[in-house]
Computed example of a mutant assay.
Amino acid sequence: MSASAPSSARPGAARGPQGRAGAPTSGGRSRATPGAVPTASGRRRGRPVLVAAVLLALAALVAAALLSLAVGSRGISPGVVVEALLAPDRSSTDHLVVLDLRLPRTVVGLVAGTALGLAGAVMQGLTRNPLADPGLLGVNAGAATAVVLAISVLGVTSPGGYVWFALAGAAAAAVVVHLVAATGREGATPVKLTLAGAAVSALLLSLTTGVLVTDSATFDQFRFWQVGSLVGRDLSAVAAVLPLVAAGALLALLLAPALDALQLGDDVARGLGQRTGAVRALGALAAVLLCGGATALAGPIAFVGLAVPHLVRALTGPAHRWLLPLSALVAPTLLLLADVLGRVVARPGEVQVGVVAALLGAPVLVALVRRRRGSLEL
């Protein structure tokens, strides 16, 4: 009797080697084509399809930006918008509306949306939690507490003045969350990060609420920032936040291969040469820079960072080299379209973009849950 078992009886032979492009066939070989990326449903998307998706998302972003510049209480034709951008005439009322009112608003939407989309994708990959959003590390709660204290104690009144306080509060909260989660032998695991973030957020929320219920003047100012808005922010506020958002975006894109390795589990990631602790620290830093900058600029806007990565992942699959760039394009498109919709549904008034984004993002997330039979997977 032979000592060796047939190849078909060996452990793992029925499944075959796992390739990066997808599941193997019954014969043990993967028939995935080079460059193909598996989607959440198991279907492979070839590189040309994904490149076409990126180009289509870029075209949609340009169209959304033009709509943001053209639509409002004063309708302006796309031709006049382009003329105002390329050959501005300060004597033209339409040009002044485009340049002084709508251009800063559109730039804020582009920067904040890009930051939120990238931050959401990074946080979901970093924690392997499909419900992770950019505020998981206490960033939103820290920014809100700092803004409330700036209004109540220091008398800051302008949205441009909130920026630095919101950034400082977001960074401080994230540091506290990471220090709490890093205690113990295992270090900052995904579960500990989630629990520490929830605990610190609850603590900061109670502090914020305590100040607001005792200071009506602070509450009147804070509520306009809290709902999330692109109005009232000028380009100087964008200039203050843009370097931080750019640094966070670059760091997030560079971490794409490491985030892919983390999806296989910490043990496998270490076997592939990844330093999981360093990856999580750098990923948390990228998320803080991105989400802190977006929150400081536009206030805490919900559902964009949560829903957009799931929407994109349905096309690209789990590969972060495609997920991150597409999220960075789709999120600002959604945010700008939400802002445009808020301008036209309640004329002559407006609905704040944070409200409209939640109304648009929630049905998308529910549809994805129903499509995947009640569960969201990474």
Rank of each mutant, 00 (worst) to 15 (best):
V148R: 09
A132H: 10
A170M: 04
A119Y: 05
F303T: 14
R20G: 00
S236C: 05
S92K: 06
L50P: 04
D133M: 13
A64P: 13
A319R: 15
A284E: 02
V122N: 07
G228W: 07
A362T: 14
L337Y: 10
A144I: 00
V308L: 08
R102W: 03
L324N: 08
V111M: 01
L58W: 13
G248K: 01
L262A: 02
V213W: 12
T189A: 11
G35I: 04
L250Y: 04
A287W: 01
V54S: 14
E186I: 09
G79E: 05
L255F: 07
A87I: 03
L61H: 02
A269Y: 09
T39Q: 14
L264P: 07
L61E: 00
A198Y: 04
A121M: 13
R90A: 15
L359F: 13
T189P: 03
G342M: 10
V356M: 09
A284S: 15
F224H: 08
V340N: 06
R20E: 03
G283V: 11
G283F: 03
R43Y: 14
R90W: 12
R185I: 01
V213Q: 03
G160M: 07
T145L: 15
G27A: 05
P159T: 11
P134H: 14
A36I: 04
L329T: 11
A346W: 08
A60D: 03
A21K: 10
S7F: 06
T39I: 07
T194F: 09
V312G: 02
P88G: 01
T316G: 10
A196W: 13
V82I: 14
A367S: 12
R10C: 08
V163C: 10
C291I: 01
A174T: 15
V156F: 01
M1D: 15
W322Q: 12
R102N: 09
P48G: 01
A174H: 09
A182L: 02
L306Y: 06
L253G: 14
P17A: 11
G299N: 09
L116M: 10
T194Q: 05
A132T: 11
G120F: 06
V147D: 10
G142N: 15
G46L: 08
D100P: 00
F165D: 04
T106C: 13
L230P: 09
G138R: 06
A298M: 07
A314V: 01
G293D: 00
L66R: 04
G349P: 10
A302F: 07
D266H: 08
G248I: 09
V122E: 02
V340Q: 11
Q352V: 03
P159F: 15
V122P: 08
E186R: 15
T276W: 11
H95V: 05
V163L: 14
V49N: 05
A9S: 14
S73T: 13
L335C: 02
L244C: 05
G160V: 10
A367T: 03
L67R: 12
A196G: 08
